[in-house]
Amino acid sequence: MSLIVKTVTTIMIGFIFIYGAYIILHGHLTPGGGFAGGVIIAGAFILKILAFGSEAIDEKKSEMGSSIFESVGALLFIGVAIAGLVLAGTFFLNFLPKGIPLHLWSAGIIPFCNIAIGIKVGAGLFSIFLALAAVKYVMTD
């Protein structure tokens, strides 16, 4: 891509990433949540690859990293659910204190579930994009 696209992308990626993190962390107060924020964060990485080409990244390392992050997200989500089972007796029970309504530190396990889903969805979509669109190979069979 041209120099203009590359420069604008370099400036914008940080803002897009912060916006995705905001959407995830405020998912229990404002519209959004883990799904939307995760896809926005994946979009930041996709924008980088689209602007700089897939030569700019190490494909093996990116695939490995996104697989690890996706597994961590899934395990975190199940871990929160099992913590409810162990500590309070019900799968997915909201066992943490609810806090003051309409404040950031409230809603028990919901922010943690949002973070887990955000990591999982973002890493999953990014690895789909890497496998489908960014690889520099053709299949022979």
Binding site: H28, L102, G108, I110
Partner: peptide, 30 residues
Amino acid sequence: AGGANLVGDVILDFRALDTLGEATVLFTSV
């Protein structure tokens, strides 16, 4: 549930098993 966003309350507290199934489907497709 404690969240002000009622949609988030429904998908992550009242019907969280639904979301677990969704996560499984996404994982399988990846």
